[in-house]
């Protein structure tokens, strides 16, 4: 067989990311399993939970990017959600007493930056609506945790919770029609 070549010679395929991904998968699995075993053997605080979550977070945010519908907004929301869980784990298992204050600050910071970008990027804001709504919902959902000592008030947490709530309500009021339309599409079965 001697076919006539009718296709162009393709550019060199780069397998760097694919190879890196495969290598890192093995590294991460070995690291996670080793940490759990060592932690179980030496006993003490369950620090391996934080290691495993951090590895999982890095894997998902760096090496296993979404294949459908990726944007800086959706990625920032994912980063914020993973970070909130990581902060809570550190507080709960290793060094308690500060996450109630820090988590509302972190969520507010993400929400504020995305809020500004959302209105700055007028042409494309429609496609980021769901991402920013998710973060808004998270900011409200963490309130029972950050304010759980009520009526003894953690004023810093309280202030940031209120600030997040204000941003969220503003978003809801301004984009109400679009939100309802989006929700109908998103939850269609």
């Amino acid at each position: 067989m001697d076919p006539k070549i009718v296709y162009p010679i393709p550019k060199n395929q780069s397998f760097f990311y694919r190879t890196l991904r495969n290598v890192m998968r093995i590294v991460f699995i070995v690291a996670a399993v080793s940490c759990v075993i060592v932690n179980l053997c030496v006993k003490g605080k369950p620090w391996s939970i934080i290691v495993v979550w951090s590895l999982w977070m890095t894997w998902n945010l760096v090496f296993s990017l979404r294949l459908v519908e990726f944007s800086i907004f959706s990625h920032a929301v994912r980063v914020s959600l993973y970070s909130v869980v990581l902060l809570w784990l550190i507080d709960y298992f290793l060094a308690p007493g500060w996450a109630q204050t820090v988590i509302p600050i972190v969520v507010f910071a993400f929400l504020l930056v995305l809020f500004i970008l959302f209105y700055a990027m007028y042409d494309t804001r429609d496609r980021h609506l769901v991402s920013i709504m998710v973060l808004g919902i998270v900011s409200v959902a963490i309130a029972p945790y950050s304010l759980h000592e009520w009526p003894i008030t953690n004023w810093i947490a309280f202030a940031f919770q209120v600030a997040s709530l204000v941003l969220f309500v503003v978003l809801l009021i301004i984009n109400w029609k679009d939100i309802v339309r989006k929700l109908r599409i998103l939850f269609r079965r």
Partner: peptide, 21 residues
């Protein structure tokens, strides 16, 4: 495939790509 098609008396013109990998 080529052997069988030509054995049956079909004139087969081949076109294709280089091997990609």
């Amino acid at each position: 495939m080529y052997n069988r098609l030509t054995e049956d008396g079909l004139k087969v013109n081949l076109e294709g790509s280089i091997g990609y990998g």
